[in-house]
Nucleic acid binder design. Sequence first.
RNA 1: GCCGCUGUAGCUCAGUGGUAGAGCGCACCCUUGGUAAGGGUGAGGUCGCGGGUUCAAAUCCCGCCAGCGGCUCCA
Length: 691
Amino acid sequence: MPRITLPDGSVKEFESAVTARQVAESIGSRLAQAAVGCLVDGELSDLSVVLDRDCTLSIVTEKTREGEADANALYLLRHSTAHVMAEAIQRVVPGALLVYGPPLDTGFYYDIAFPEDRPLKEGDFEAIEAEMTKIVREDRPFTRYEMEYGAGIAKLNKEGNKFKIDNAHRAHEAGSLTLSWYATGEPGKDWEDLCRGPHLPSTGRIGAFKVMSLASSYWHGDENSDRLTRVYGTAFYSKKDLDAYLTRIEEAKKRDHRVLGKKLHLFHIDETVGQGLILWTQRGSIVRKELQKFIAAELEKQGYSEVFTPHIGKLDLYRTSGHFPYYADSQFPPLVDRDHMQQLSDEGCTCAQLSNNLKVGEIEGFMLKPMNCPHHIKIFGSRQYSYRDLPVRLAEFGTVYRWEQSGELNGMTRVRGFTQDDAHLFCTPEQVGQEVLGCLSLVKIIFDVLGMKDYRVRVGLRDPDSAKYTGDPANWDKAEAACREAAKSLGVPFSEEPGEAAFYGPKIDFVVKDVIGREWQLGTVQVDYNLPERFDLGYIGPDNQRHRPVMIHRAPFGSMERFCGVLIEHFAGAFPLWLSPEQIRVLPISEKSNDYAREVVGKLTAAGLRATLDDSDNRVQGKIKAGAEMKIPYLLVVGPRDAENRAVSVRAFGEEKDLGQMPLEDFVAAAGEEYRTKGKVTVRDRMPAGV
RNA sequence: GCCGCUGUAGCUCAGUGGUAGAGCGCACCCUUGGUAAGGGUGAGGUCGCGGGUUCAAAUCCCGCCAGCGGCUCCA
């Protein structure tokens, strides 16, 4: 006699076991028709699930009561569409072995091992989609059946798909006593897949779908294991929703910093210079310089000292720090000492010998610095400090070079040479908490001024199973506790993630998403007890004894390259006045107003504003269009009427109509104010009343 | 690094074996125009690089380089 509690609190009692579908029918035929699945005691299940005990039940339909897409309904849809796609793929490419096909936030994928002589190509998508359409039209039910584990394994062994056998083993290890299959139709007759479920009632519920892309993946995410082909797709309940999703992707692409970087002439990557090496153009450099000025001013307020260090350092430095040879794979190869190089070349040294001799230290050379800390450590170590001098805070816009895998490089967000807004703080153990907090608040100031609200905070801890971390576990525990405490006091949600620590210490990262949803780490604060140890740093304490300082590494932007890339997308290229490479463009109505326009530009420039003149022989409409394309904050239209009043007609970016006329002197003052206050006060605030 | 896709003018792209195209931009000329493109003329390309097949290659094949999507990695 199962008693079933519905979401409204009402209870339905049944004589014997019922399926969720039957319960839905007992509530109403419309609900039963709309139902795609259910939640039993909160767990997403098939509509065919048998309810033989008391439980709570919520019927899942395509839309929530508020009329929005239901996340659970989308999950079912996409999981089911993955099955349909897999069946279609096996029709198109016989011999393709299924591995694993889960739903995602925006779709689904299926990892598949294709025969070596028949890889899947994008050209196959059309055929796959055609087969999928057929399967959907056939409206075949997703039919679940279970087998006891032993019998199930026997079945799988007979079928011989090692990937599915492995999935079954894993399910068993996770405590599953049975294995379940889903047949798309009738078990034993139609296509089926080992799967935990749940699924839609039938393929006919799939409204609209698309096979999106191909990628390679590794079995179990292990690069030494089998290489699989990952086929991505997406599905929605309606064609309209699918189209809206595809349009959204297209729109997002227009905000992509790589697209805008070209269009707005912000940066350039030249394959002759090298992959992952950013050339900051005139315009992009202005954005970067403004950001650097901004942070330098904050650093001055917070008691930092600026330092400058070179781009290279001797290998021994990095042997001490632990960068070399341990991280040699992710560094540019060493620059071998000239004399050594000559000698080796005379002796006919092989590459392997060279490499080995570099590792063991028989050959000296230099390295492009992968991090700034060793140089800063040497500055700290160059004189004696008393505890009264601490914290010592050394800041530098330091350029570092890392050998990122070619497949990883991405516009400005993942590059091989980049400049960190770096600093290293040397403090007493007692000062750690307060210094970390100071660093975090700096990151927050920056994010606030730029209006970046959409970020998450990650506390990166060490992975207890990995050997890549250096240093004493007791120190790690202290550092991790300090980070956790600091993150707590920040007052924003954060996640603790084992395995995300730096090799020398735990860290607190600020992570944002780009336009296509990829996450990038920007600001970071890292506590480090290890490098001071490795470099035997010390300060004299109140007890007249030598003590070990603690180091904090921090970079509120992370890197200028990545930050600017993300910032371009954040503003969709329409920078606020203070950051904009071209703040104001003056558009004379005709040649007759060029002289006055030049005078206007002169006044703006004299006031420290970045102003230009458009004296092309376009009409003013054309000049406005051109200015809008470049996303210039203010366009000043000037004609005889303005010249007569010594005024300008102001048009702000993004406004349909112009803001009206304003005395030239007032505009210069107002724009200057907007620049200095970073937009707290704008020209619009200073427009004459009535506009 | 792995799999797939892409690479043609400064930019965006068309061009399925027969001597390379469009729009925007650029230069010049006409136009002197008051709020999201007035008109004309012209310059500009060893079709990513190197091999091969062919009478003939932007086009077909092989290798490399670079970009894109994902995987893996990210001190």
